[in-house]
Amino acid sequence: MMRGRTDRLHAEASDYFASSESPAVTRTDYYWLRLVGTGLWFLVFGLVTFVLGFLVLPVIRLLTPERARRQRRSRAVLGAGMRGFLHGVSGLRLIEFEFIGREKLGRPGQLIVANHPTLIDVCYLLGFAPTASCVVKAGHFRNLITRGAVIGAGYIPNAPTEDMIHAAEAALRAGETLLMFPEGTRTVPGKPMAMQRGAANVALRAARVLTPVHISCEPSTLSKNLPWYRIPPSRPKWTLRVGEDIDLAAYRDAPLPIASRRLHADLAGLFAGANTVRD
Protein backbone atom coordinates (compact mmCIF):
# COMPACT_ATOMS: atom_id res chain seq x y z
CA MET A 1 0.00 0.00 0.00
CA MET A 2 2.59 2.53 1.20
CA ARG A 3 5.04 1.30 -1.38
CA GLY A 4 2.57 1.73 -4.21
CA ARG A 5 1.99 5.31 -3.14
CA THR A 6 5.71 6.08 -2.94
CA ASP A 7 6.26 4.60 -6.38
CA ARG A 8 3.48 6.72 -7.75
CA LEU A 9 4.94 9.86 -6.17
CA HIS A 10 8.34 9.05 -7.65
CA ALA A 11 6.80 8.57 -11.04
CA GLU A 12 4.96 11.86 -10.68
CA ALA A 13 8.08 13.70 -9.53
CA SER A 14 10.27 12.45 -12.36
CA ASP A 15 7.46 13.16 -14.76
CA TYR A 16 7.28 16.67 -13.35
CA PHE A 17 11.00 17.42 -13.59
CA ALA A 18 11.24 15.82 -17.01
CA SER A 19 8.53 18.12 -18.24
CA SER A 20 10.37 21.20 -16.93
CA GLU A 21 13.43 20.31 -19.02
CA SER A 22 11.48 20.20 -22.23
CA PRO A 23 9.49 23.41 -22.19
CA ALA A 24 6.93 22.40 -24.74
CA VAL A 25 4.41 24.69 -23.04
CA THR A 26 5.34 28.26 -22.24
CA ARG A 27 4.84 29.18 -18.63
CA THR A 28 3.13 32.53 -18.37
CA ASP A 29 1.33 34.73 -15.85
CA TYR A 30 4.27 34.79 -13.34
CA TYR A 31 4.49 30.98 -13.14
CA TRP A 32 6.97 30.78 -10.21
CA LEU A 33 5.16 33.44 -8.19
CA ARG A 34 1.92 31.59 -8.79
CA LEU A 35 3.57 28.35 -7.65
CA VAL A 36 4.78 29.89 -4.37
CA GLY A 37 1.47 31.73 -3.93
CA THR A 38 -0.51 28.54 -4.46
CA GLY A 39 1.59 26.74 -1.83
CA LEU A 40 1.06 29.57 0.65
CA TRP A 41 -2.67 29.63 0.03
CA PHE A 42 -2.97 25.91 0.61
CA LEU A 43 -1.16 26.39 3.89
CA VAL A 44 -3.44 29.27 4.90
CA PHE A 45 -6.51 27.32 3.80
CA GLY A 46 -5.45 24.33 5.92
CA LEU A 47 -4.82 26.55 8.94
CA VAL A 48 -8.13 28.38 8.59
CA THR A 49 -10.02 25.07 8.23
CA PHE A 50 -8.27 23.83 11.34
CA VAL A 51 -9.09 26.96 13.36
CA LEU A 52 -12.73 26.93 12.19
CA GLY A 53 -13.15 23.21 12.89
CA PHE A 54 -11.41 23.18 16.26
CA LEU A 55 -12.20 26.60 17.67
CA VAL A 56 -14.93 28.61 15.94
CA LEU A 57 -17.42 25.84 15.22
CA PRO A 58 -17.13 24.20 18.69
CA VAL A 59 -17.77 27.64 20.24
CA ILE A 60 -20.85 28.05 18.03
CA ARG A 61 -21.92 24.56 19.16
CA LEU A 62 -21.64 25.60 22.80
CA LEU A 63 -23.48 28.86 22.33
CA THR A 64 -26.32 27.53 20.16
CA PRO A 65 -27.91 24.39 21.55
CA GLU A 66 -30.80 24.57 19.08
CA ARG A 67 -29.93 22.41 16.07
CA ALA A 68 -31.44 24.43 13.22
CA ARG A 69 -29.85 27.66 14.39
CA ARG A 70 -26.51 25.98 15.01
CA GLN A 71 -26.49 24.63 11.46
CA ARG A 72 -27.39 28.02 10.01
CA ARG A 73 -24.60 29.74 11.91
CA SER A 74 -22.03 27.04 11.15
CA ARG A 75 -22.88 27.12 7.44
CA ALA A 76 -22.70 30.91 7.38
CA VAL A 77 -19.22 30.80 8.93
CA LEU A 78 -17.97 28.06 6.59
CA GLY A 79 -19.50 29.84 3.59
CA ALA A 80 -17.77 33.09 4.54
CA GLY A 81 -14.48 31.18 4.90
CA MET A 82 -14.80 29.64 1.44
CA ARG A 83 -15.85 32.93 -0.12
CA GLY A 84 -12.91 34.63 1.58
CA PHE A 85 -10.55 31.98 0.23
CA LEU A 86 -11.83 32.46 -3.33
CA HIS A 87 -11.69 36.25 -3.16
CA GLY A 88 -8.21 35.94 -1.69
CA VAL A 89 -6.76 33.72 -4.40
CA SER A 90 -8.46 35.66 -7.18
CA GLY A 91 -7.42 38.99 -5.59
CA LEU A 92 -3.81 37.76 -5.68
CA ARG A 93 -4.37 36.86 -9.35
CA LEU A 94 -3.63 33.17 -8.70
CA ILE A 95 -6.95 32.23 -10.29
CA GLU A 96 -9.89 33.88 -12.02
CA PHE A 97 -13.51 32.93 -11.77
CA GLU A 98 -16.86 33.82 -13.20
CA PHE A 99 -20.11 32.63 -11.63
CA ILE A 100 -23.09 33.08 -13.92
CA GLY A 101 -26.60 32.88 -12.46
CA ARG A 102 -25.69 32.33 -8.83
CA GLU A 103 -28.78 34.27 -7.68
CA LYS A 104 -30.77 31.18 -8.78
CA LEU A 105 -29.17 29.10 -6.00
CA GLY A 106 -30.36 28.80 -2.42
CA ARG A 107 -34.13 28.35 -2.89
CA PRO A 108 -36.04 26.21 -0.36
CA GLY A 109 -36.22 22.52 -1.30
CA GLN A 110 -33.77 23.08 -4.15
CA LEU A 111 -31.40 20.28 -5.08
CA ILE A 112 -28.26 21.59 -6.76
CA VAL A 113 -26.27 19.10 -8.84
CA ALA A 114 -22.89 19.94 -10.30
CA ASN A 115 -20.09 18.23 -12.15
CA HIS A 116 -16.85 18.00 -10.21
CA PRO A 117 -13.70 18.74 -12.20
CA THR A 118 -11.55 20.29 -9.45
CA LEU A 119 -10.73 20.19 -5.75
CA ILE A 120 -12.28 23.56 -4.90
CA ASP A 121 -15.66 23.26 -6.70
CA VAL A 122 -17.40 22.95 -3.37
CA CYS A 123 -15.93 26.30 -2.23
CA TYR A 124 -17.73 28.13 -5.04
CA LEU A 125 -21.07 26.46 -4.41
CA LEU A 126 -21.11 26.57 -0.60
CA GLY A 127 -19.32 29.92 -0.60
CA PHE A 128 -21.99 31.57 -2.75
CA ALA A 129 -25.00 29.50 -1.61
CA PRO A 130 -24.02 29.20 2.06
CA THR A 131 -27.43 28.20 3.41
CA ALA A 132 -27.17 24.89 1.56
CA SER A 133 -26.50 21.50 3.07
CA CYS A 134 -24.20 19.16 1.21
CA VAL A 135 -23.65 15.44 0.77
CA VAL A 136 -19.97 14.89 1.59
CA LYS A 137 -17.58 11.96 1.67
CA ALA A 138 -18.15 9.85 4.79
CA GLY A 139 -14.38 10.02 5.35
CA HIS A 140 -14.69 13.74 6.23
CA PHE A 141 -16.68 12.69 9.32
CA ARG A 142 -13.70 10.64 10.53
CA ASN A 143 -10.94 13.05 9.50
CA LEU A 144 -9.87 15.03 12.60
CA ILE A 145 -9.48 18.30 10.71
CA THR A 146 -12.78 18.28 8.80
CA ARG A 147 -14.88 16.43 11.39
CA GLY A 148 -15.85 19.47 13.48
CA ALA A 149 -16.88 21.43 10.42
CA VAL A 150 -19.06 18.82 8.71
CA ILE A 151 -20.81 17.80 11.95
CA GLY A 152 -21.39 21.39 13.05
CA ALA A 153 -22.85 22.34 9.67
CA GLY A 154 -25.09 19.26 9.62
CA TYR A 155 -23.81 18.00 6.29
CA ILE A 156 -24.80 14.49 5.17
CA PRO A 157 -22.29 11.62 4.86
CA ASN A 158 -22.53 9.76 1.53
CA ALA A 159 -22.47 6.30 3.12
CA PRO A 160 -24.21 4.04 3.96
CA THR A 161 -26.46 4.58 0.94
CA GLU A 162 -29.78 4.15 2.72
CA ASP A 163 -28.90 6.68 5.43
CA MET A 164 -27.65 9.18 2.84
CA ILE A 165 -30.83 8.92 0.78
CA HIS A 166 -33.13 9.27 3.79
CA ALA A 167 -31.18 12.17 5.30
CA ALA A 168 -31.05 14.00 1.95
CA GLU A 169 -34.78 13.42 1.50
CA ALA A 170 -35.52 14.78 4.99
CA ALA A 171 -33.37 17.89 4.41
CA LEU A 172 -35.17 18.75 1.17
CA ARG A 173 -38.58 18.10 2.71
CA ALA A 174 -37.68 20.46 5.55
CA GLY A 175 -37.10 23.13 2.90
CA GLU A 176 -33.30 23.15 2.95
CA THR A 177 -31.22 23.68 -0.16
CA LEU A 178 -29.01 20.66 -0.82
CA LEU A 179 -25.87 20.28 -2.90
CA MET A 180 -24.80 16.96 -4.43
CA PHE A 181 -22.01 16.04 -6.80
CA PRO A 182 -23.53 13.11 -8.71
CA GLU A 183 -20.08 11.89 -9.72
CA GLY A 184 -19.30 11.34 -6.05
CA THR A 185 -15.66 12.13 -6.68
CA ARG A 186 -13.61 14.35 -8.94
CA THR A 187 -13.49 13.58 -12.64
CA VAL A 188 -10.21 12.43 -14.13
CA PRO A 189 -9.60 14.89 -16.98
CA GLY A 190 -10.34 13.45 -20.38
CA LYS A 191 -12.24 10.51 -18.91
CA PRO A 192 -16.03 10.42 -19.17
CA MET A 193 -17.82 11.18 -15.94
CA ALA A 194 -19.19 8.20 -14.05
CA MET A 195 -22.34 9.33 -12.31
CA GLN A 196 -24.04 7.72 -9.37
CA ARG A 197 -27.81 7.41 -9.46
CA GLY A 198 -28.23 8.71 -5.89
CA ALA A 199 -28.74 12.34 -6.90
CA ALA A 200 -31.53 11.50 -9.37
CA ASN A 201 -33.16 9.30 -6.76
CA VAL A 202 -33.04 11.98 -4.06
CA ALA A 203 -34.32 14.62 -6.52
CA LEU A 204 -37.41 12.58 -7.36
CA ARG A 205 -38.09 11.69 -3.75
CA ALA A 206 -38.21 15.20 -2.34
CA ALA A 207 -36.77 18.09 -4.36
CA ARG A 208 -39.09 21.00 -5.16
CA VAL A 209 -36.71 22.12 -7.84
CA LEU A 210 -33.61 20.58 -9.45
CA THR A 211 -30.92 22.95 -10.70
CA PRO A 212 -27.75 21.88 -12.55
CA VAL A 213 -24.51 23.85 -12.33
CA HIS A 214 -21.88 23.39 -15.03
CA ILE A 215 -18.32 23.88 -13.82
CA SER A 216 -15.29 24.13 -16.07
CA CYS A 217 -11.70 25.13 -15.47
CA GLU A 218 -9.26 26.22 -18.18
CA PRO A 219 -6.49 25.15 -18.21
CA SER A 220 -7.32 22.13 -16.10
CA THR A 221 -5.87 22.16 -12.57
CA LEU A 222 -6.44 20.66 -9.10
CA SER A 223 -8.04 17.64 -10.69
CA LYS A 224 -7.95 14.11 -9.39
CA ASN A 225 -4.50 12.44 -9.25
CA LEU A 226 -2.70 15.77 -9.56
CA PRO A 227 -0.75 17.19 -6.59
CA TRP A 228 -1.30 20.87 -5.77
CA TYR A 229 2.13 21.94 -7.10
CA ARG A 230 1.32 20.87 -10.64
CA ILE A 231 -0.07 24.29 -11.41
CA PRO A 232 -1.05 25.02 -15.01
CA PRO A 233 1.23 26.97 -17.38
CA SER A 234 -1.14 29.93 -17.40
CA ARG A 235 -3.52 31.33 -14.78
CA PRO A 236 -6.54 29.00 -14.47
CA LYS A 237 -10.04 30.35 -14.89
CA TRP A 238 -13.13 28.70 -13.42
CA THR A 239 -16.46 29.27 -15.10
CA LEU A 240 -19.59 28.26 -13.21
CA ARG A 241 -22.85 28.48 -15.08
CA VAL A 242 -26.18 27.80 -13.37
CA GLY A 243 -28.40 25.93 -15.85
CA GLU A 244 -32.16 25.97 -16.31
CA ASP A 245 -34.25 24.21 -13.66
CA ILE A 246 -35.16 20.65 -14.64
CA ASP A 247 -38.89 19.88 -14.62
CA LEU A 248 -39.31 16.94 -12.26
CA ALA A 249 -43.06 16.52 -12.78
CA ALA A 250 -42.28 14.96 -16.15
CA TYR A 251 -40.53 12.05 -14.41
CA ARG A 252 -42.74 11.53 -11.41
CA ASP A 253 -45.47 9.50 -13.18
CA ALA A 254 -43.35 6.34 -13.20
CA PRO A 255 -42.40 4.28 -10.12
CA LEU A 256 -39.31 5.71 -8.38
CA PRO A 257 -36.64 3.21 -9.55
CA ILE A 258 -37.66 3.59 -13.20
CA ALA A 259 -38.10 7.34 -13.00
CA SER A 260 -34.73 7.80 -11.29
CA ARG A 261 -33.01 5.78 -14.03
CA ARG A 262 -34.55 8.07 -16.65
CA LEU A 263 -33.61 11.24 -14.82
CA HIS A 264 -30.14 9.86 -14.18
CA ALA A 265 -29.62 9.16 -17.89
CA ASP A 266 -30.80 12.67 -18.78
CA LEU A 267 -28.49 14.26 -16.18
CA ALA A 268 -25.54 12.23 -17.49
CA GLY A 269 -26.33 13.49 -21.00
CA LEU A 270 -26.64 17.06 -19.76
CA PHE A 271 -23.25 16.99 -18.03
CA ALA A 272 -21.46 15.00 -20.74
CA GLY A 273 -21.11 18.16 -22.84
CA ALA A 274 -19.81 20.28 -19.96
CA ASN A 275 -17.19 17.79 -18.99
CA THR A 276 -14.78 18.01 -21.86
CA VAL A 277 -11.87 19.39 -19.85
CA ARG A 278 -8.54 19.53 -21.56
CA ASP A 279 -5.71 17.75 -19.76
Partner: peptide, 12 residues
Protein backbone atom coordinates in the same frame (compact mmCIF):
# COMPACT_ATOMS: atom_id res chain seq x y z
CA UNK B 1 -31.09 -4.52 -8.15
CA UNK B 2 -28.37 -2.34 -6.64
CA UNK B 3 -28.07 -0.61 -3.28
CA UNK B 4 -30.12 2.43 -4.34
CA UNK B 5 -32.89 0.21 -5.76
CA UNK B 6 -32.83 -1.73 -2.49
CA UNK B 7 -33.63 1.45 -0.56
CA UNK B 8 -36.61 2.11 -2.87
CA UNK B 9 -37.81 -1.48 -2.50
CA UNK B 10 -37.53 -1.44 1.29
CA UNK B 11 -39.39 1.90 1.51
CA UNK B 12 -42.12 0.53 -0.77
Amino acid sequence: IDSIDAVDLVDH
